[in-house]
Design a binder for these strands. Structure first.
Lengths: 127, 127
DNA sequence: CGATTCGTAACTATTATTATTACATGAAAA
DNA sequence: TTTTCATGTAATAATAATAGTTACGAATCG
């Protein structure tokens, strides 16, 4: 698919698509080609790409809305709060990332296929 | 303490302090008084207030940076992704909230006290 | 060559959060 | 009772993070 097509699907801008996909390309999840017949292609089988791979490819963005405002604050109260919550956040993050590793594109594709079949059945048998 | 004093400690604005503390007051964690001698006071013993109480008092703000962009999207792909990740996010959130419930103000106060003692010792014995 | 498509820098727009101003209300002290 | 101090709150402004846009260069294919 081209960036323009993806942007239309995602209801966003082609440049935003390219920026995001660039991360996936650098991680070897997709390839891109220029010119006629160019666009984006999956580089691996569906069952060999997990949500965790994508999370990593996107630069492991912060998962939590909150978290230490500073890593090494001078404020002793802030230090105490950081220390008390650090483990909890780290554990929750580790758990979430592990779960991301259990979901592959194949998982999503299978679920999509099921939903799509249901969708068509509902359309053909209204009421 | 007054909002002005707290704002100085937190390096923010008194009105921001009032807005935030208002949530804690509504939850019964603190009381506020106007006029001379007014300001904010803890309403409960230190070991009876957990980080979870505060989280709840502040309106249970979203913990995760990411999450379902839409709750009930028409897009079948989005539906499949939401379905695959919902459980993981819910579990991680539950775990994190449970951990918040284990940390009390007394926990933080004790750790602060220890850090403060260390801090003073370091000042009195330089090099 | 010409149409197409990605690559990328620079810029703009949007949104959410935080900060500020202004003034009303209430409480204690002089 | 008047003055001073403090919260309560609405309205507005500033800031920062994210997303979107424009513009143009580079590569590819027919």
């Amino acid at each position: 698919m081209t960036s323009d097509e993806l942007a239309a699907c995602l209801q966003t801008n082609p440049v935003v698509v390219r920026r995001t996909m660039a991360g996936l390309r650098e991680a070897g999840l997709v390839t891109s080609g220029r010119g006629h017949g160019g666009g984006w292609t999956l580089a691996r089988p569906l069952d060999d790409v997990t949500m965790r791979d994508i999370y990593t490819a996107l630069g492991e963005p912060m998962l939590f809305q909150m978290g230490n405002a500073m890593e090494n604050p001078a404020c002793l109260v802030e230090q105490a709060v950081n220390h008390a919550l650090d483990d909890a956040f780290r554990d929750a993050e580790a758990m979430l990332i592990a779960r991301l590793g259990e979901v592959t594109l194949a998982t999503l594709a299978a679920d999509f296929k099921r939903r799509f079949a249901e969708h068509r059945a509902a359309l053909n048998q209204p009421g």
